[in-house]
Simulated scan of single mutants.
Amino acid sequence: MNGERDDAAREFESHRARLFALAYRMLGSAAEAEDTVQDAYLRWHGAAPGQVAAPGPWLNKVVANLCLNRLTSARARREEYPGTWLPEPVATGALGPMERAEQREAVSFAVLTMMERLSPPERAAVVLRDAFAYSHREIAGVLDCTEAAARQLYHRGRKHLSDGAPPPGGVDAEQNAALLGRFLQAASDGALDQLEQLLTEQVVVWADGGGKVRAALRPVHGRTNTARFLAGLFERFTTGVRFEVAEANGTPVLLGWEGNALTSLGQVEAGPDGVTAIRILRNPDKLAHYADRHRALSQNG
């Protein structure tokens, strides 16, 4: 009996990383994704021996349906969220291989934020198709619907995302990292003119404090307003802060550390004309998971 349990535990562990990647893409929260994977383990542990013929598809379906249940209640919570809601960052390595552009796009801050406008089934269809290359028939099996309905859910979800997507023509990761360095230098120096030159006219800043710490409750729009906001932010909140350029969700980010505590994470989105969007995470609950993984990776490296 113990041998069977050990084998079952090992089998589950071989799927854990993929299950976390699936849950995170659907929920936009690392903490909730880990809870979901743990719930899936309890269901796996409770299954009768021999009940599961194909563990991978069975576990994918369990996790997807657990996420659908969580998303239904999460939508109500996020409607009452104080200020802007932004997805929780994760260390890129926790998301598994991302060889295809669709896989990288699915974990970007921009797409995870836009995912909030999708219904839970639409979100599941988009994630399973784009990030895991599921066929419409396989998606139908997960969602317990017809193949035609699964196809419609996917196309409707993709349309919602494309309607809110920025125009094409972004920059690659190397250019983004270089821009982030110039951006940090100008902001920390309070060089308003240099900062403005890096911004597009339509730039927007979103900040997420979650009601736990001070952060702008409304988006800041426009080049001049953004430059002033950021210069003031650096002047007020950067004393005693150590900055570090790192990576989260497949893109360069700027970390702000106060001692051993991660107190901010900034992500800059850029196009060929400059910075188009800035997302600043300050909610300590959303930074905890990333901070733990980042410290562990730094120690192991």
Results as ranks from 00 to 15, higher is better:
F243L: 15
L192M: 12
H155L: 14
P57G: 01
R117S: 15
A261H: 11
A40Y: 00
L297K: 13
A246G: 10
Q197N: 13
R137T: 12
S29N: 08
P57M: 02
H221C: 07
R218E: 15
E269C: 00
S162Q: 14
G157S: 03
L297P: 09
A187I: 06
L128S: 04
G210S: 12
G301F: 07
V245H: 10
F132P: 01
V37E: 00
A248D: 04
G211I: 00
F132Y: 06
V107W: 00
R16Y: 09
D285C: 03
V107T: 09
P49C: 05
R5V: 00
V245G: 01
F234A: 14
A178D: 14
H221K: 12
F183R: 13
E102L: 12
L184I: 06
R214G: 10
V205Q: 03
Y24G: 04
V204G: 02
A124E: 06
N283I: 07
R16N: 10
L195K: 00
G157T: 02
G222T: 07
A48Y: 11
I278G: 01
T113L: 11
G3I: 10
L118R: 04
A21P: 00
A76H: 09
R5N: 13
L66K: 07
A23V: 05
P219G: 03
M115R: 12
G209K: 04
A270F: 03
A21Y: 03
A23I: 00
P167T: 10
E102F: 01
E247Q: 15
L217M: 14
L199I: 06
R75D: 15
V111E: 14
N60Q: 11
Y290C: 08
N283E: 15
H155S: 10
W257P: 11
H155M: 13
T239F: 06
N65I: 08
R129Q: 09
A227H: 02
A21W: 04
S108R: 11
E138R: 14
A277V: 06
G181Y: 02
P166W: 02
A207Y: 00
L27T: 09
R5T: 07
F12G: 07
A227Q: 05
E196C: 11
A248H: 06
I139A: 09
G169F: 08
G170A: 13
G240E: 08
P121M: 09
L254M: 12
R156W: 01
R70N: 10
A227D: 08
L71C: 06
L195I: 05
A227W: 01
R77D: 14
E138P: 00
R70S: 12
R158G: 04
A94K: 12
L68Q: 06
R156A: 13
L71V: 05
A177V: 04
R293C: 11
F234S: 12
A246N: 09
D189R: 14
V213M: 08
A40T: 07
A48P: 05
